[in-house]
């Protein structure tokens, strides 16, 4: 059983995330706990004190609950594992982190529409929530069929860390897995796909680590090209797994690849 916390709002991105979780449920047993954080309008200063503040928070939570219950009712047929929502008032990142730290979750998930501004994604994965979360996360950008998984490798990757974080979930899912070694080059015009992946630096170590964990590795490839072209190529995968937390320089082109990849991204 994989215990997942999904952050929801009454919007398209959350519908996509819940439906994607519904697909995950075809491959593994999941429990999906939705959480909706209703942020006070005057961010930073909570209104009033004592019972005044309590009553006001209560009213805000009730409003949030109404909106979210409607979403949950609509999406439940697509994901029967969806539990009743938890609605809290407060600062979003803090509240989600608090829930993740106390709730023994295996995975955090949220729907975030792909953005043309690559800065949006960088901001997301360098945020307090993503840097401090006690478990891996899936950012669902699109509802794509979950048929195969890409595990990304790049120079400087710590393979054992990546494989440790994902092996339990991937082993349960039993989805075909490709290892894709990325060589982003901004000045390269056409994308080069090389099947001789073992020639890439660090690739063999990653493959060894994957095999040791008993995962079903299908093929390895090296992609050399512009980050946007690599991202386009990765759209054929239903899940793209990458170790980025605390592992990459902020200016790394791998961030750009992930920012433009339209598929859901498993971040560890």
């Amino acid at each position: 059983m994989v215990n997942i916390l999904v952050s929801v709002n009454p919007d398209l991105a959350s519908s996509i995330a819940i439906r994607y979780a519904g697909q995950l449920a075809h491959f593994m047993e999941i429990a999906l706990q939705p959480i909706h954080v209703k942020e006070p309008e005057q961010k930073g200063s909570l209104f009033g004190t004592g019972w005044v503040r309590h009553t006001w928070e209560h009213a805000l939570a009730e409003k949030g609950e109404e909106e979210i219950n409607l979403l949950i009712r609509t999406e439940k047929p697509y994901c029967p594992a969806l539990a009743a929502p938890r609605v809290v008032v407060g600062e979003r990142e803090n509240e989600i982190l608090k829930e993740l730290q106390t709730g023994a979750y295996d995975l955090f998930m949220e729907g975030i529409l792909a953005s043309f501004d690559e800065g949006d994604f960088k901001k997301l994965i360098t945020s307090k929530l993503y840097q401090s979360a006690p478990c891996p996360a899936i950012v669902v950008k699109n509802l794509v069929p979950l048929e195969k998984v890409a595990l990304l490798s790049y120079v400087g990757l710590e393979p054992s860390k990546l494989v440790d974080d994902v092996s339990d979930i991937l082993r349960q899912a039993k989805l075909p897995l490709d290892v894709i070694h990325l060589v982003p080059k901004k000045d390269k015009k056409d994308l080069e796909v090389n099947e001789e992946a073992h020639e890439a630096q660090g690739f063999d170590n990653l493959v060894d680590a994957i095999r040791k964990k008993g995962l079903d590795l299908q093929k390895g490839q090296v992609l050399t090209g512009h980050p946007k072209d690599i991202a386009d190529y990765l759209s054929r995968y239903g899940l793209v797994v990458c170790a980025v937390r605390n592992a990459l320089d902020k200016k790394s082109p791998i961030h750009t690849v992930l920012a433009f990849t339209p598929s859901p991204i498993f971040i560890c």
Partner: peptide, 8 residues
């Protein structure tokens, strides 16, 4: 197959 995204 329809991909969704946003642009500022």
């Amino acid at each position: 197959k329809a991909w969704v995204s946003v642009v500022d």
